[in-house]
Design a protein around this nucleic acid. Structure first.
Lengths: 202, 202
DNA sequence: ATTATACGCTAACGTTCGTTAGTTTTAAAT
DNA sequence: ATTTAAAACTAACGAACGTTAGCGTATAAT
């Protein structure tokens, strides 16, 4: 786990940007932390913007690996109950967000969303759109399998996922102050239970 | 509607902070826009931080006026259907957010949430907690009136409100780029309809 | 052994930053 | 008409900003 200089710059910038925002962090601050002179940073990144860009791009490709590929869905959905499937997804996502670097990237997205068109694109396309599209397919398949009630699959996707996003916002803020997050986690469990109660055919 | 200098500074800072973030805006930029010298600004605000503080404080008191007082609830709830009540709340909130200054304040909250403890407090306490608490009381009363099904009122509050927060996040980003928001607005309507379908006693 | 490349360094560039001291103008109160 | 207070101004402070030019050295390829 020894990092080369470029990686050190990357993770130091990730940490600082996520606390103070891009404009609130100077090249000097980053290089001081890394232990090199300001000028040396430019051997690794063309300029300050490129550091942020590399962070956002990294998050993009990282996040794209979290959802299972759609061609594997049929196999998965047939052999598990709705409850098992949703709770497994929940565990996956929780695990994904337990990596503190991912939490930092999430924070940067929030902070930079109005300064960086790329950040906005990642939020709208990669987080919202991709997730909702994936879930829409899942729920359509579950309806076809007669495992859940035939509500509009897109509505179901939104009803399921959007509370999760808000809970994540709350979770991230609490975590930032080192506060207790157990209540938010309970709420997330309650949300999943409530959703299951609504859609399950009894 | 003619503004004095202090108000001009306030609204100029509001606009710039909401686009570039607190650290991304300089005193020179604000005063240039207002049409005064940098030093003159200090006749109205002690320092840069105090400008942001005044914006957050203003939002706080402004937002606190949006929810109807709890002592008026019984009267309102008895003479209207659940649907009327929720849709009226929706209209109120929409109207509240049509004021572009409020959208700017919302953006600042997002941008500054990890730099400013006050911003975090406003998000957690004033936006999340207060809203959920209000809705919890509403749903409890509706259950007592036998107007909705007896789910856990807090769960209902979250199921109702948290998708709204996420939709608002999406809405704000789309608005920022001048993109079409009609789909998000439709989704919000769908969400309310879905929620009504779930909780209404038929 | 020589050459090339990667990557650190020193030093500095011109600009901008938040803020202050001190002074003049403006307009209302006496 | 004089006093007073608010709010504008000029000028500047030291510090920090992102970035560049140029140089030294270590390592790896020829």
């Amino acid at each position: 786990m020894t990092l080369n200089t470029k990686e050190k710059i990357f993770y130091t910038a990730l940490d600082l940007f996520s606390k103070k925002g891009f404009s609130g962090v100077s090249i000097r601050e980053i290089t001081r932390e890394v232990g090199i002179k300001e000028s040396s940073l430019y051997n690794h990144f063309a300029n300050k913007d490129e550091i942020l860009e590399s962070i956002l791009t990294y998050f993009r490709s990282d996040f794209s690996k979290t959802l299972p590929p759609i061609e594997m869905l049929d196999a998965i959905l047939q052999k598990s109950t709705v409850e098992e499937f949703l709770k497994a997804g929940h565990r996956n996502f929780k695990q994904f967000m337990e990596d503190e670097n991912r939490v930092k990237m999430w924070r940067i997205l929030q902070i930079e969303q109005f300064r960086s068109p790329l950040a906005r694109e990642v939020i709208l396309e990669d987080l919202f759109k991709t997730t909702i599209h994936f879930l829409e397919i899942v729920f359509q398949k579950l309806i076809d399998l007669n495992k859940i009630r035939p509500y509009n699959p897109k509505t179901l996707a939104i009803e399921y996922q959007y509370p999760v996003f808000s809970l994540l916002t709350e979770y991230t803020i609490l975590k930032f102050d080192g506060k207790d997050t157990s209540e938010v986690e309970t709420r997330l469990d309650n949300h999943i239970d409530f959703f299951l109660e609504i859609v399950t055919i009894k």
